[in-house]
Amino acid sequence: MKRRHFLGLMGAAGVSLTTAVTAKASSSADVAGMPNVGGVLFDASRCIGCRKCEAACNQVNDLPKPAKPFDDLTVLDATRRTDAKSYTVVNKYVPKPGENPVFRKIQCNHCMEPACASACFVKAFKKTETGAVVYDPSVCVGCRYCMVACPFNIPAYEYDKALSPRVMKCTLCYPRLLEGKLPGCVEACPKEALQFGKRRELLNIAWDRVTANPDKYVQHVYGEHEMGGTSWLSIAPKPSFAALGMDEGLGTTSAPELTSGALAAVPAVAGIWPVLLTGIYAISKRKDKIAEEEKKAAVEAAIAKASADAEAKLAEELTKAEVANKRRIEVEVKKALEAAAKDSEGGEDA
């Protein structure tokens, strides 16, 4: 009985805790945003799949040489993703069979509210004003939760290293940006499919281009709002971004907002549980005590009753005994008298 009660209570409290507190962690009034944050605009309709950006990225980041050289375009026949040896890859898609292929460059999107940063339990990731989301391998534990969390499947891991594996992902060439240089890929692109600039200006450029050519472009700038927005923006020829392997269903909720409800429940549990549990403990203890006292009282009463009963019985026995005794005495007396009477009669006779 009691158990069911407490379980119901705990369940109820748990539910209300985690669901009632889904309000945003804090009002966005406290967040200034990054008005001058940098970014890159990628126009898939301009990309010719030459892999020059891949080669440049490999070079400026000192990554290991790939098995097939970068001018070997047969690599494009397979769909690839970023891995520990390549921060960026270009993939080929054929949205409508028989028509020209479209190419898309994949790399870290440098989210405005990075899921990787939200997920990392040692703060290894940081969003910077340059736009770059940078990673610090000197604290990384290698739990790989950042890889789980990234909605774009970008971070890769050095699974083949035994002692010092790192998470590997595009840095937006953060060191080069600090030197005032362009990211390697942007500099190398022969077709101006990549353009570096302030994100807010890039957004204007993107929308101008998209709205000016409504027949050509999907009327959407990918990265403007996806997962709270990204520094890397993309526009694509029709029919869709999905045709280029991009997830169109990510929604606009940023990673910190997705977890803020659960995080808000943590201090609530720490604040409410001790009060509730100690209260239940005190109640059950009090109940025990009362039960104990009742038991004690009942035992005393029982003892009292028992002794009273015993006394009564004794008295009864006594009276009974007395009666019996009396009778016996009477009988004896009678007998004696009779005997005496006989004797005297006999005496008279004798």
């Binding site: 990392c120 040692v122 604290v139 534990v141 739990c143 594996p165 995080l263």
Partner: peptide
């Protein structure tokens, strides 16, 4: 076994706390 650099497992608690992470909790 699972984490890449197990000797750093105390980091999140004692060295640099990523408090926005559920995993930290």
């Amino acid at each position: 076994y699972d984490v890449g650099r197990p000797w750093r497992l105390p980091y999140p608690i004692f060295y640099q706390q990523g408090t926005t992470s559920i995993l930290f909790e």
